[in-house]
Simulated assay, not measured.
Amino acid sequence: MEDKRMETKKEHLRLELDSLSQNEEFARVVTAVFMSRLNPTLEEIDDVKTAVSEAVTNAVIHGYKGEAGTIYMDITAQSGEETSLTVCVRDAGIGIPDVKQAMEPMYTTDTSGERSGMGFSFMEAFMDQVQVESEPGRGTLVTMKKFIGR
């Protein structure tokens, strides 16, 4: 008898961006276009775009404090029995001394009062899985996963 399970297929995209605020939009659009091969709903695309925007914005504003740096993105599309998109956003900036505290709603290191401190909360609300790893002086890695078609 023939095995009816779907073959799992993975595709990968790697992107390096300068830590400029206008690259947040570019990262969001590139991710949405890459994600489109998974046949997501508009809501799923919007969710991922919002989460990517927050992760890249955090790297620009908090990771590099507006200074020059590089933001690294790795995006993996997996189709098959469990269709998903995994987005990793990494910076080599100042890092986060207390990740647990930084992930609390309304927490921000921005003293100007212009930032709401909701970046990680939005990522968690719009993605199915979010993991943050950081070390002071070595940068931050945010790994987010969205299951498609659930």
Rank of each mutant, 00 (worst) to 15 (best):
M1P: 10
M1N: 10
D3F: 05
E7K: 15
K9V: 08
K10N: 07
E11N: 14
E11D: 10
L13E: 03
R14T: 13
E16F: 10
S19Q: 05
N23R: 08
N23F: 00
E24D: 12
E24T: 15
E25V: 11
E25P: 07
A27M: 04
R28E: 02
V30P: 04
F34T: 08
F34N: 10
M35W: 01
M35E: 01
M35V: 06
S36I: 06
L38D: 03
L38S: 12
N39A: 14
N39K: 15
P40G: 10
T41C: 09
E43F: 08
E44N: 15
I45P: 04
I45K: 14
I45T: 14
D46K: 14
D47N: 15
D47Q: 13
V48E: 00
K49P: 02
K49Y: 00
K49F: 01
K49W: 00
T50R: 15
T50S: 15
V52Q: 10
E54N: 11
E54I: 11
V56E: 02
V56H: 04
V56S: 09
T57C: 11
N58G: 08
N58M: 05
V60M: 06
V60F: 00
I61E: 09
H62L: 07
G66I: 04
G66F: 00
E67C: 11
A68N: 13
G69W: 00
T70F: 01
T70K: 15
D74N: 13
I75R: 09
I75S: 07
A77S: 09
Q78P: 04
E81N: 14
E82G: 12
E82Q: 13
E82T: 14
S84M: 10
L85Y: 01
L85W: 02
T86L: 07
T86C: 06
C88V: 15
V89D: 01
V89W: 00
D91L: 07
D91E: 06
D91R: 13
A92F: 03
A92S: 11
G93V: 03
I94P: 01
G95E: 01
P97C: 02
P97F: 02
D98A: 09
K100V: 03
Q101H: 05
Q101K: 15
M103Q: 09
M103K: 10
M103L: 03
E104A: 15
Y107T: 09
T108F: 00
T109H: 04
D110L: 06
T111E: 03
S112Q: 04
S112L: 03
G113Q: 04
E114F: 09
R115D: 02
S116P: 03
M118V: 04
G119N: 10
S121A: 12
F122R: 14
F122G: 09
F122Y: 07
E124N: 12
E124I: 09
F126E: 05
F126C: 14
V130S: 08
Q131A: 13
Q131C: 10
S134Q: 07
S134H: 04
P136R: 15
P136Q: 11
R138K: 15
G139F: 02
T140V: 05
T140D: 03
L141S: 12
L141A: 11
L141Y: 01
V142R: 10
M144R: 13
K146W: 01
K146D: 00
F147G: 12
F147P: 06
F147R: 12
I148T: 10
G149I: 09
R150M: 08
